[in-house]
Design a protein around this nucleic acid. Structure first.
Length: 462
RNA sequence: GUAGCCAUAGCUCAGUUGGUUAGAGCGUCUGAUUGUGGUUCAGAAGGUCGCCGGUUCGACCCCGGUUGGUUACCCCA
């Protein structure tokens, strides 16, 4: 028998890890609910048509395809061979595969909206927390199966959505105790920059290059721009753009000089100003407080479907890539034949948030507690009494368990320790006679004898 | 798709310029300890040194291949 193993890039989550992950997910989920978002789940697999061509050429390669069933049937063998030949020459064929694992949550969501837009109440605010799969080469912080955690609003142009989504970011990370900077920019500004360079068609090249600024530095970005076909004059304008710094207001004012005369640029600037001021007024309630929103003109975001304001969240005080991102996309469902439904959304990088909380030791102690009370097993009559006491506690929502067999104290204590159980209840012959039990707080090492009636109280307060 | 690094006990790792019997710490189990744990002490179990082949009198070590893991690039969360 071969050793059991896991497919590359996938993970098991043990009990402690699941509890910690759920702490994060529950925090995010409850915040989404507080802002009126509704849950949505879509299947693990989608039709290949739904996914192909939506993520660019690179993305298509990373889609996990599912082999059709019944290929080994004799009657299908000719068809299957022909289909395989076609795949070898770089085309997909329905006779070989017609389904694939979902690659992200956004496209399935768009598919859902396109299928249901007649019956949905718009604007539709949905959140979705599910695993997605990518046939990528795994490396640090990158897996082939990972969770995405998205919230989107579709069917609304209002910029208050952007303000609200910023507020969700801010609130979630405050609850988790992580100091963050929410970077904000607008695709309209990037479009205006491309226009100012006289190369609107070069917008994608420009955004891809400047997105790498903090990673590779200004000189390399210039090189990249050059290889992407921009001339010296254009690069000079971009360098000027990248050099803008100061406070949010200062940055925006400097930008006005550069692209403010272009209609797209002016609108982009106006929108950023609106979101920032509304956030300060409505969310923080204080126009003068330092804002977690930070204008960053180098922010570009890889995905090309964004058209308006874009976000990215960076944890402060820890070396880690972005832990969240999002933005406005104005015609996502157009891909599925339903035009004119605008949308804006954000996403949380759960795995990275986990790493940040771990590194900064921000997981609360209680997260590790499952069982609240361990009853020691000290014999048949004793455990019978213990069992009925346990049922009472359980009826009142207290998690408890009885040690599975009569054993030495030593073993039973160690079991409680390992499971981070805060209370041990010792009920032996003496206690059985007196209708009492010994309640020991494992952390403090203190114990007290209480009557059966007051056990509930003794283990309720920590 | 490209490239580097790694593979020895359940876990983390040592090791031999190629020589008979491969080690440590942690963990596990037993006992000191028949009703009070996390400490200590004593002991035990646990390895065809990833797999296949080659070189050699002799390979865990050298060489080739292979599989798995990992990291970086492309791309991305």
């Amino acid at each position: 028998m071969s050793k059991p193993s896991l497919p590359q890039g996938t993970r098991d989550f043990g009990p402690e890890v699941v509890r910690k992950r759920q702490y994060i997910l529950n925090t995010i989920r409850s915040t989404f609910e507080l802002y009126g978002f509704q849950p949505l789940e879509t299947p693990a697999m989608e039709n290949l048509d739904t996914l192909m061509g939506k993520y660019g050429e690179e993305g298509d390669k990373l889609i996990f395809k599912i082999l059709n069933n019944g290929l080994s049937d004799a009657k299908n063998s000719e068809k299957a061979k022909a289909a395989f030949e076609k795949v070898l020459s770089g085309k997909n064929d329905k006779d070989l595969t017609e389904r694939a694992l979902k690659y992200d949550l956004t496209i399935p969501f768009a598919r859902y909206v396109a299928m249901n837009h007649q019956t949905l109440t718009l604007p539709f605010k949905r959140y979705q927390i599910q695993p997605v799969w990518r046939a990528d080469r795994p490396q640090k912080g990158r897996y082939r199966e990972f969770y995405q955690c998205d919230a989107d609003v579709v069917g609304s142009n209002g910029l208050l959505n952007e303000v609200e989504l910023s507020a969700i970011y801010w609130q979630v990370f405050s609850k988790l105790g992580v100091n963050v900077e929410i970077k904000i920019n607008s695709r309209k500004i990037l479009a205006a920059l491309a226009e100012a360079c006289g190369g609107s068609d070069k917008m994608v090249d420009i955004t891809v290059a400047i997105d790498k600024l903090d990673k590779i530095g200004l000189e390399k970005v210039k090189e990249e721009l050059q290889t992407r076909g921009l001339d010296e004059h254009q690069i000079a304008i971009i360098a000027q753009y990248l050099a803008i710094d100061g406070t949010n207001t200062e940055k925006l004012n400097k930008l006005k000089e550069l692209v403010g005369s272009l209609p797209t640029g002016a609108i982009g600037i106006e929108e950023l100003e609106f979101v920032i001021s509304q956030f300060a007024e409505l969310v923080q309630g204080d126009q003068t407080a330092p804002s977690p929103l930070v204008v960053d003109f180098t922010l570009a975001r890889g995905l090309n479907y964004y058209t308006g304001i874009i976000f990215e969240v960076k944890a402060l005080g820890v070396q880690m890539g972005s832990i969240g991102g999002g933005g406005r996309y104005d015609d996502l469902t157009g891909l599925f034949g339903v035009p004119n439904i605008p949308g804006v959304g954000i996403s949380f990088g759960v795995d990275r948030i986990y790493d940040v909380l771990e590194e900064l030791q921000l997981f609360p102690q209680e997260v590790q507690t499952g069982t609240q009370v361990l009853f020691f097993n000290l014999g048949t009559a004793e455990s019978k009494a213990a069992f009925s006491l346990m049922q009472q506690l359980r009826n009142n929502g207290i998690c408890c368990e009885l040690y599975h067999e009569q054993a030495k104290f030593d073993k039973q204590f160690k079991y409680a320790d390992k499971k981070h159980i805060p209370f041990a209840v010792i009920l032996g012959t003496k206690e059985l006679e007196n209708r009492t039990c010994m309640v020991k707080h494992l952390g403090k090492g203190e114990q007290q004898e209480v009557s059966w009636e007051s056990l509930q109280e003794a283990v309720s307060g920590l």
